[in-house]
Nucleic acid binder design. Structure first.
Lengths: 162, 162
DNA sequence: GAATAAGGTTGCTTAAAGAAACCAGATTAG
DNA sequence: CTAATCTGGTTTCTTTAAGCAACCTTATTC
């Protein structure tokens, strides 16, 4: 497969994808948000090959998305917990989930109804917002100095792989 | 590689990742948002192998994230444009970008400064919000009926690969 | 009318994903 | 106190996809 790595890329999206942009990493993070913490539980819930899970967990720990915590008195019992960096993937996971629910709804499953614990009210759809909270589309937006946005565009750097 | 597909998965995150969860697809979408529309431009900007680009574009068209438009009078000149479904990935791309800027800032690059065209003001960080726009973390949130949220958890279905 | 550009396709090589077996240290069951 | 089991892996092998480069066809340009 010879997958490319973009550690050096000047594009932050490429750098983000480098850490959580493969098939399994984000699903591992998702399940960590669901509460999963143990190797075997990830393995069973995800149906992932054990060697691949090892690799993904190690990489997520390396990238400080998860931390490996030794529970159990004499070692040999570990938990993988989200770090702040990992928890900060929450908006991405939710945005993905809402996108999936909206555009590929499962016939037998109602969409995610996630609620605020305090008020009990449903969360709102993720959206890009201006400073006042007004929703913005890709067409409403531009990058200062020089480049300007036109229809369906979002100007950014034009470097390779970014 | 024998990558798994999750078309049948009951998890909408897995279904979303099925469409845009590989290395290249989301970068293609990102560049489409940057304004790229032509095969050769994607190829050069991304540095992607041409057969892989073919495959990804075809899949994105199949999944109705992009549409292939025949421009040029006698055929043989095409553009790939975002559909509404594709444009709807905007929050995901921005969330990824902000996460990358926050946690893996490039030393030589200032973070994305995306602005509202009308007001000229910088967009706000993506966040999960309650109905009133109050920001919520993974700990502030629960799923109704039965399951409840505890620290670092986000309850959801416990199905395989979900 | 030859050269170049656009948009691919084909064939080969390399590397990663998947499956299953194996393994060692801790815990529990009998 | 020994055997079975659980946990968290590692190893080996096979399959499949990514990367590369060459090639190909249909416009358009020179």
């Amino acid at each position: 497969m010879a997958r490319k790595r973009f550690d050096d890329s000047s594009c932050s999206v490429a750098r983000a994808l480098n850490e959580v942009g493969d098939w399994w990493s984000l699903l591992v993070v998702l399940h960590a948000m669901y509460g999963t913490r143990r190797f075997v539980d990830f393995q069973q819930e995800l149906g992932i090959a054990r060697n691949i899970l090892c690799d993904r967990l190690a990489r997520l720990v390396d990238n400080q998305v998860l931390k490996k915590v030794d529970v159990g008195e004499h070692g040999s019992r570990f938990e993988y917990r989200l770090t702040e960096k990992g928890r900060d993937l929450f908006p991405i996971v939710i945005a993905l989930r809402q996108w999936g629910d909206k555009w590929n709804p499962a016939p037998d499953q109602e969409p995610l109804d996630l609620r605020d614990r305090l008020t009990g009210r449903t969360i709102r759809p993720m959206e890009v917002q201006d400073a006042d909270g007004k929703p913005l589309t890709v067409r409403d937006v531009f990058v200062p100095e020089g480049e300007t946005a036109t229809e369906d565009r979002l100007p950014g750097n034009r470097n390779k792989a970014g």
